[in-house]
Structure formats: C-alpha cells, structure tokens
C-alpha cells in the first residue's frame, strides 16, 4: 500500500486509486463484513457506503492533522478512538434521519469502527500525508467502497426480490431467487464479481500493467 513513489501521484490519480486500482471491496477485500451483511438491497448498500465514507473522511482529517503529535506506540489506539468518535456521531445521525434505515442496518453502523478499511487507510495513508491529499484519497476510497457495496446490493436486490430501489422490475410473475438476499447469496454474489474481474484481467493480459492483480486479498 505505501508505495515509495506515492508522492508523485497527481491528485486525480490519488483520488482514482480507491475507485479502481485499490478498490477496497473488489481488489483489497477490506471491510467485507458490512459489505456482505447489509447489502440485501441497493438502498441499504448506499446508506452504508455513505456512512462509511463520512467516518472515513472525518477520521482521515483528524488523523492527518495529528500525524506529527501522536507517538508511534499509541497510534493505533488513537486512531481507533478517533474512528469510534465519528462512528458514534454517524450512529446518532442515522437514528435521527431515518429510524427505518437505522433498524435495517442494525449493529452494522456501530461495527463501522472495526471496518479494517478505515483503520488501514488511517495507518497507511492519512498518517503520512497532508490533510488535502489524505482527504482526496479518502474520498476516492469511500466512493470506491460505496460503488462496491452498490454493485453487491443492486445485484442481490434484483435477483433476490426482483426490485431495484423498491421498484418492481419484472412484474408480478417474477419468482424471486430468495437465496440471494439470504447470507449465502452475499458470498455468491461477491465471489461472482471477483470472477468477473479475474476473467477481465485474464482476457486482457496487456492491460495487467494498469490493473493490479488481486494480491491484496490476504490482508483480510
């Protein structure tokens, strides 16, 4: 993650990194628990993505501002407390905005604290870069995460309930593929997306230079 030549990335590349090359969901396989648990519908997926992006931006800003003051030994603990603060904020915010959404997402809002993607970004990027740079990268990562969740949520909602954003797509005769909104469906759909990306990579061997192989998957 911490490539020595990272300083030379332009702001646009820095931003695009999270959306494509290091997409947290599809390339790094980070933050899988919320990615699979709440993506039973497109709306849930977007809400979760937005909440995570908010926490990511807030904690990135603080971590980046404090990067020269935090002693190395206690940095992880500091990051976690910062992240937990923002998660508490978002938890109360969502409860205030939509109780329905709050109940659908359940404990997974609070579990944003332990989303490894956020801690990973704090450690690998925000703690080494100035606020503007870190924020750009965090925004890209957050959007990439949201896109990933949406890709999972929309497919699961279409197959599992025959709807998208609650709008029926196939009429009343559609027989929903219920397993897709149940837990196994989460694994299957993410597995299928990874298959698609693998196939894409293998199909265009010349393009492997621009698209990194999924070597990050062992980071959990």
């Amino acid at each position: 993650m911490a490539i020595p030549g990272q300083q030379e990335l332009t702001q646009l590349e820095n931003f695009m990194e999270g959306i494509w090359k290091q997409n947290p969901v599809f390339v790094m396989l980070l933050g899988l628990c919320p990615a699979l648990a709440v993506t039973v519908s497109a709306v849930n997926a977007l809400a979760m993505g937005a909440a995570t992006t908010f926490v990511l931006l807030g904690s990135t800003l603080l971590v980046s501002l404090m990067r020269n003051f935090v002693p190395k030994e206690v940095r992880i603990a500091t990051y976690i407390v910062i992240i937990a603060t923002f998660v508490t904020i978002v938890d109360y915010l969502i409860a205030a905005i939509s109780l329905e959404l709050y109940e659908a997402l359940g404990a997974f809002i609070q579990l944003i604290v332990v989303n490894c993607m956020i801690l990973g970004r704090a450690e690998a990027h925000a703690s080494r870069n100035a606020p503007i740079r870190a924020l750009t990268n965090a925004l890209g990562m957050g959007l990439g995460f949201t896109i990933g969740l949406f890709a999972l949520g929309s497919v699961r909602e279409i197959l599992g309930s025959g709807t998208l954003f609650g709008v029926s797509l196939f009429g009343p005769d559609f027989q929903p593929w219920v397993v897709m909104v149940l837990p196994p469906g989460g694994f299957f759909v993410l597995g299928a997306w990874l298959l698609v990306f693998n196939w894409w990579r293998n199909r265009t061997p010349a393009a492997t230079g621009t698209l990194k192989p999924a070597e990050g998957h062992s980071h959990g």
Binding site: L29, V179, L182, P183, P184, G185, G186, F187, F188, L190, G191, A192, L194, L195, N198, W199, N202, A214, H217
Partner: peptide, 22 residues
C-alpha cells in the same frame, strides 16, 4: 481454472458452507 483461483473460489466455498448452515 486460473479464473477462479484465489479469493473468488474461497468466497464461493464460503457461500456453500453458509448454505449448509442455513
């Protein structure tokens, strides 16, 4: 096959396990 190697295969496997636990 090359295409299914790595994480994709693990996830499919996890899906099957999850189906069993259902």
């Amino acid at each position: 096959p090359n295409v299914v190697q790595g994480a994709a295969l693990s996830l499919m496997l996890a899906g099957l396990l999850s189906l069993v636990f259902m």
